[in-house]
C-alpha cells in the first residue's frame, strides 16, 4: 500500500466513525422530530433521546472535523474540487450544523415552553436536513460529477437521482442506527414501553434504509457505472456482508430478541462505507482524480499518520472513557 492509499484509508476510517456516531446523532434528531406535536406524548421518547445524546454529541461531531482536515491536508486538490463544485449542498449542510448545535444547546436552558419548542424544532429539522445534504455530496462524488479541476456545475452535479437517493439513504440509515442505539438506552433506563417504541422504529427504518440502498444500486448502475461495476465485483463480499447483517438484525428484532443489535447495525453501515471505498478505488473523484494524483508530499502524509496514531492511543481511549461513563450513568444530569 502506498502512503497515499494509507492516507485514504485513514480518511475512510474517519468517515466510518462519523457515519456511525454522527449518523446516530442525526438519527436521534430524526426521532425527536417524529415524536409528534403533542408535547405530552412526545416527552418520553424525547427524554430518552436527550439523555443519550447529551454527553456525546459534541465529541461525535469532531469526526467531521477530522475528515475535513485529513481531506484538505492529505488530498488538497480533491478538497478544492469538491468544495468549488458542490458548494450549494455543502453550505446548506453547514447551515444545518449551526442550527442543529444551537437548537440543541439552547433548548435545555430556555425556560419558556414556546422558546423551547422553537429550539427543539430547529434541532430536529436540521438533524434531518444536514445528513441529507451530506449524502447528496457523497452521492455526487460517487456519480463522478465532480471534475478533478473543480468548478463543476453547481446544481446539476447533485440534483440528480443518485445524489438525492444517497441523501435520503443517509437520513434513513442514521435513523436506523439511532433507533437501535436507543433501544439499548431505553432498556438501561428500565423503560420497557420506550424499548418497544424504538424497536418498532428500528424495524421500520431498517426497511426504508434497505429500500433506499436498493434504489441506490439501480441509480448507481445508470449514473456511476465505474463504481457500480467494482461494487458488484471487488466490493461484492462487503455488500453481501452488509445484507447479512441487515437480515440478521431484522430477524433478531422480529423475534423480539435483544442480542447483538448494536454490532449488527454498525456492521451493516460499516460494510456499506467500505464497499463504497473499494468500489471507487483507486479514485478519489471517479473517474477524474486518482488517489495518487491528489496526494500531498510524503512528509505531509507522515504527519497525517502520526496524528492518526496519536488519535488511536489518546483519542480512542478517551472516547471509550466517555462512552463508558455515559453508559454507566456516571455522567448524570443534576436534579
Amino acid at each position: 500500500m502506498s502512503k497515499a492509499d494509507a492516507a485514504a484509508a485513514i480518511l475512510w476510517v474517519g468517515a466510518t466513525f462519523y457515519a456511525l456516531f454522527g449518523g446516530a446523532d442525526f438519527g436521534g434528531g430524526f426521532w425527536d422530530l417524529t415524536a409528534g406535536w403533542d408535547d405530552e406524548r412526545g416527552q418520553r421518547p424525547r427524554d430518552v433521546i436527550q439523555r443519550s445524546l447529551t454527553p456525546v454529541w459534541e465529541a461525535n461531531h469532531v469526526w467531521l472535523i477530522f475528515v475535513l482536515v485529513v481531506l484538505w491536508t492529505a488530498f488538497p486538490p480533491a478538497f478544492s474540487a469538491i468544495f468549488t463544485t458542490l458548494y450549494v449542498p455543502i453550505a446548506l449542510a453547514a447551515l444545518g450544523i449551526v442550527l442543529r448545535g444551537a437548537g440543541f444547546a439552547f433548548r435545555k436552558s430556555i425556560v419558556g415552553l414556546r422558546g423551547r419548542r422553537a429550539m427543539g424544532a430547529t434541532f430536529a429539522i436540521s438533524s434531518v436536513v444536514t445528513p441529507f445534504f451530506m449524502g447528496a455530496v457523497v452521492g455526487a462524488i460517487a456519480a463522478g460529477n465532480v471534475p478533478a479541476e473543480g468548478n463543476g456545475d453547481a446544481f446539476s452535479s447533485w440534483l440528480a437521482p443518485l445524489p438525492l437517493l444517497i441523501g435520503a439513504m443517509f437520513v434513513a440509515s442514521g435513523a436506523y442506527l439511532a433507533a437501535v442505539f436507543l433501544v439499548g438506552d431505553a432498556r438501561r433506563g428500565g423503560d420497557e414501553e420506550m424499548e418497544s417504541y424504538f424497536e418498532r422504529r428500528a424495524l421500520g427504518a431498517a426497511v426504508v434504509a434497505g429500500a433506499f440502498a436498493l434504489a441506490g444500486l439501480f441509480a448507481l448502475h445508470s449514473e456511476a457505472r465505474y463504481v457500480f461495476d467494482r461494487l458488484t465485483a471487488e466490493g461484492l463480499p462487503l455488500v453481501i456482508f452488509s445484507l447479512l447483517c441487515g437480515a440478521a438484525l431484522l430477524a433478531v428484532l422480529l423475534r423480539g430478541g435483544r442480542r447483538l443489535l448494536r454490532p449488527l447495525a454498525a456492521g451493516a453501515v460499516i460494510a456499506v462505507i467500505w464497499g463504497w471505498g473499494v468500489a471507487q478505488f483507486p479514485y478519489l473523484l471517479p473517474t477524474s482524480l486518482r488517489i495518487d494524483q491528489a496526494a500531498a508530499p510524503d512528509a505531509t502524509m507522515t504527519i497525517v499518520f502520526i496524528v492518526f496514531a496519536v488519535a488511536a492511543v489518546v483519542v480512542l481511549p478517551s472516547l471509550g472513557l466517555l462512552y463508558t461513563l455515559a453508559q454507566k450513568d456516571l455522567l448524570e444530569a443534576e436534579h
Binding site: F66, T73, T300
Partner: peptide
C-alpha cells in the same frame, strides 16, 4: 493545504 494543513491535523486531536 499540504503545507499548513499539518497544523490543523494536529489541532483536530
Amino acid at each position: 493545504g499540504a503545507a499548513f494543513g499539518v497544523a490543523f491535523a494536529i489541532e483536530g486531536i
